[in-house]
Design a protein around this nucleic acid. Sequence first.
DNA 1: TTTTTATAGTTATATTTTTCACATCTAATG
DNA 2: CATTAGATGTGAAAAATATAACTATAAAAA
Lengths: 234, 234
Amino acid sequence: MKFEKIIATCVEINSEIFFIVKINTKCPLKRSLRRILLYRGSLLRLQALGVKRVYSYTLGSETGVSAEQVRKDFSEYHIKGNQRGGYRVDKLIGEMETIFHNNGNHNIIVVGRGNIGSSLANYNNFIQRQINIVATFDIDPSKQRIRSDIPVYTMERMKEIIDRFEVRTAIIAVPDMVAQNVCDQLVKYGIDGIVNFAPVILKVTDDIIVNNVNLSDEIESVIYCVSLTGLEEF
Amino acid sequence: MKFEKIIATCVEINSEIFFIVKINTKCPLKRSLRRILLYRGSLLRLQALGVKRVYSYTLGSETGVSAEQVRKDFSEYHIKGNQRGGYRVDKLIGEMETIFHNNGNHNIIVVGRGNIGSSLANYNNFIQRQINIVATFDIDPSKQRIRSDIPVYTMERMKEIIDRFEVRTAIIAVPDMVAQNVCDQLVKYGIDGIVNFAPVILKVTDDIIVNNVNLSDEIESVIYCVSLTGLEEF
DNA sequence: TTTTTATAGTTATATTTTTCACATCTAATG
DNA sequence: CATTAGATGTGAAAAATATAACTATAAAAA
Ligand SMILES: NC(=O)c1ccc[n+]([C@@H]2O[C@H](COP(=O)([O-])OP(=O)(O)OC[C@H]3O[C@@H](n4cnc5c(N)ncnc54)[C@H](O)[C@@H]3O)[C@@H](O)[C@H]2O)c1
Ligand SMILES: NC(=O)c1ccc[n+]([C@@H]2O[C@H](COP(=O)([O-])OP(=O)(O)OC[C@H]3O[C@@H](n4cnc5c(N)ncnc54)[C@H](O)[C@@H]3O)[C@@H](O)[C@H]2O)c1
């Protein structure tokens, strides 16, 4: 795991210079570990279908990874298979749970019960991945009247819920202008992992993990790739 | 750009062996180019705030990238600044548009007007990034009655809309079990770029660009990082 | 039992990506 | 006008990642 050093920055806004002291963090979970997550998701689905056994190339094909890469990743995390018969799905899942120290469900909260926040709250399959959304928060009173399995609370109750459910990870799904503000509150109440959907890089100290999910970038990168095809020869 | 080779795979389901011939593609847009996208998003926001000029470390700090990396990326795409005065925001944005061949808006469609599909359709800021959702599609008649700026059509009208708006990129936001099916339809109608929210790896030929966005993985990777802190020394 | 074969596991190599160090340039300053 | 401070630009080194090639082994077949 690596952290960026503290740097002082300045911005010019309308010919006035502003100084910002920023401490930045990255948690770009090394690629191999991200793939273990990917394999696990795929294995859980395969298991549900009744699949008992996979080969490195089966799993690779399922996850869009080369067979060598799958074996290499397993090797890195000391996951052993049977040299002729591949890997047992249940055993694999078990070993992955160990890697992720998965002792039961992980309670998380979502701030902002708008489009994205509601999508996440309505999604039923998180529980298969042991992700448990215990509450959502919103400042808008009309949102607070939403009736669903997952409650919507006012911001005032955030600390209480975080403490009660021992929440360590939160999702930010509020407009970009208030994302930093919400982030600061979350950190104050003891959150140390954030998934951020707002298109801003949050300023946090380096003990806080932030994962920025930028949907515009995800779409735009495909649009760009598509615009390339036909232009370049292979 | 790199493509995986064609491989034959087999899966064992309830002790029956199934063979699948699969052709897989990846479009992992090289990291530097992904960051250019990130810089551009940030610059557009800064521009709206009235910022005229940035330095490599300003922009780096804004996007969570090191100053050296920013300069290196610019160097790769032959983007020049002023060796004392940094970079002019408008000029930078212009150069990036050139890189992305951005001649006007890009029309895209969304299949599945459920949680994610509606979130995307309701999002007003795509247009700033020249992403233009022209239509959404759903098999559910109740979804087809949704009234909003962006229409919901039956699947029957897909080909017509794709042709009319010259759509090349589509977003898949349907349940995982039908994602491959929808994908095949899209490809049949001439789509060659797909952003896939379903947690399955789509089987496509290597002329089709697929970007898988797996929200569970995004959340889980933070949960994992958080569970590590305190366990490891730095 | 021996041989064959398919697949895991590992080591070596290649490629990509990031970081570092410093030369270079430009705008401000005295 | 010469000097200097503070930026950019880039080649080289280092680190991370991916690919390929090879070895070992277990299961199946002969
Ligand atoms: N919807 C998308 O497809 C999409 C795409 C790209 C990026 N994003 C980003 O994701 C974030 C959420 O998007 P969305 O479409 O769900 O927005 P939204 O407007 O639907 O929802 C935002 C919610 O946050 C609440 N909110 C506002 N200020 C708050 C505060 N200070 N504290 C708590 N709650 C507050 C609002 O009441 C609202 O319910 C935004 O930052 C947006 O830029 C969304
Ligand atoms: N909502 C989330 O937070 C979340 C998180 C992780 C992954 N995902 C994935 O994203 C995808 C969409 O999720 P969602 O929550 O929006 O689902 P959803 O159930 O809300 O919406 C799916 C929509 O697709 C439509 N649909 C079903 N079959 C179709 C078909 N054959 N053709 C066209 N439309 C069809 C349904 O009518 C529905 O409106 C799913 O694959 C899901 O696994 C969602």
